[in-house]
């Protein structure tokens, strides 16, 4: 048996559907667990979710703690906090690592869990690993020492083109969140078996101070950016909301396509936030990403640089996007985009 305790993934489900980030975290967690010689556990919370534990096991979990109670039908900070903390505290020893998606749920919940356990939390990691760490602190001599098999939580430092490795080996659980699209999911195996442990949580009155009156989900006609194989994105170079006509038109030339945007275009009110790719938007990894009039600042780059192929159209040859795109064309996007559509169609036999 390993000297380390297990890894826990907090699953993110909406109305019985697991979010992609959960599968990705299970993939990452399984790799970390193998290095540590421990198991991957998952916590799932909700109401009428009896079908979910099996899916989690097929996707890499060895044991699933299930809190299936009507109070958890919709996410609310305080009820989910209570449920997660109850499960974690029921374990004989604190888990070595806890991972959570950097979704609106994870970003709301994980900081509270970390603060409750007085432990470290690294946000929006793009890579996770296990390794050793030597701390030589003069200012904090109590922390000095050599630590084996700590969580390496690796994240970009925005506004600077740096990556940073964050460590917190002094206290378990070591916690991190990761964004959708950043990690590779576990390869689904429907023959995998595991243990399912139902848990009951006793809520306190104060957990219901925050009342969820209603949860409204958009029925979006746009294909989800996270699932699209081809994304055509527009930036500030579009000049206005009407510029997105060109983006949509080019996207219509591809199957499984979606329209994306840079933050500047969203902040200018040209297109809804749900289309935003980048640091404060979505992280995507399509097969083809076409960037029209997007300069490629680090904030955008971190959301799309994992795309298999990046094609950039920009009139400014010195735009940073040409440093990491695979193909680029320098010119007026309003002229180039329709030509691209025509040429792509011509290149494929009808």
């Amino acid at each position: 048996m390993s000297q380390y305790t297990n890894i826990i993934v907090i699953a993110d489900q909406i109305q019985g559907d697991l979010r992609p980030v959960t599968m990705e975290l299970l993939g990452a967690a399984s790799e970390l667990a193998e290095k540590l010689g421990v198991k991957t556990h998952a916590i799932v919370m909700g109401s009428q979710i009896s079908h979910i534990p099996e899916v989690l096991i097929h996707n890499g979990a060895d044991e699933v703690y299930v809190v299936d109670q009507p109070e958890l039908k919709e996410y609310s900070t305080l009820t989910y906090r209570r449920a997660a903390i109850t499960v974690i505290e029921s374990l004989p020893k604190p888990p070595h690592i806890i991972l959570c998606g950097a979704t609106t749920l994870g970003r709301d919940l994980a900081p509270r869990i970390a603060a409750y356990f007085e432990t470290g939390l690294t946000a929006d990691c793009t890579e996770l690993d296990i390794g050793d760490y030597v701390h030589k602190g003069k200012a904090d001599p109590n922390k000095t020492g050599t630590f084996n098999n700590c969580l390496y939580a690796i994240r970009p430092s925005f506004g600077e083109s740096l990556k940073a490795r964050i460590l917190g080996p002094w206290k378990n659980p070591q916690m991190a969140t990761a964004r959708t699209g950043a990690m590779i999911p576990f390869k689904t195996d429907t023959t995998r078996t595991g243990k399912i442990t139902p848990m009951t949580v006793k809520f306190e009155d104060s957990d219901f101070r925050l009342k969820v009156i209603e949860t409204v989900r958009e029925v979006s006609s746009d294909l989800d950016l996270l699932k699209a194989k081809v994304i055509v994105s527009g930036g500030f170079g579009l000049g206005g909301p009407e510029g997105f006509e060109v983006v949509r038109d080019l996207a219509s030339a591809f199957s499984e396509s979606a329209v994306g945007s840079s933050r500047k275009a969203v902040d200018s009110g040209w297109i809804p936030y749900s289309h935003q790719v980048g640091q404060t938007g979505k992280t995507v990894r399509p097969r083809l990403y076409i960037a029209l009039g997007i300069s490629g600042a680090i904030q955008h780059r971190v959301g799309m640089s994992n795309s298999a192929m990046i094609l950039a159209v920009n009139k400014d040859e010195s735009a940073p996007i040409f440093q990491f795109a695979h193909y680029g064309i320098v010119g007026d996007l309003f002229e180039i985009a329709p030509l691209l559509k025509e040429q792509f169609k011509q290149a494929v036999p009808a």
Binding site: L121, S161, L162, K163, A164, R165, I166, F324, V330
Partner: peptide, 25 residues
């Protein structure tokens, strides 16, 4: 430093794939 459970262990530049972009102009 004393009260923080995390530290920045190491930083490095995000690798530039400079030059690999095929630019048409």
């Amino acid at each position: 430093l004393v009260g923080s459970p995390t530290v920045v262990g190491k930083t490095w530049k995000i690798g530039e794939k400079g030059g690999s972009c095929k630019v048409f102009k």
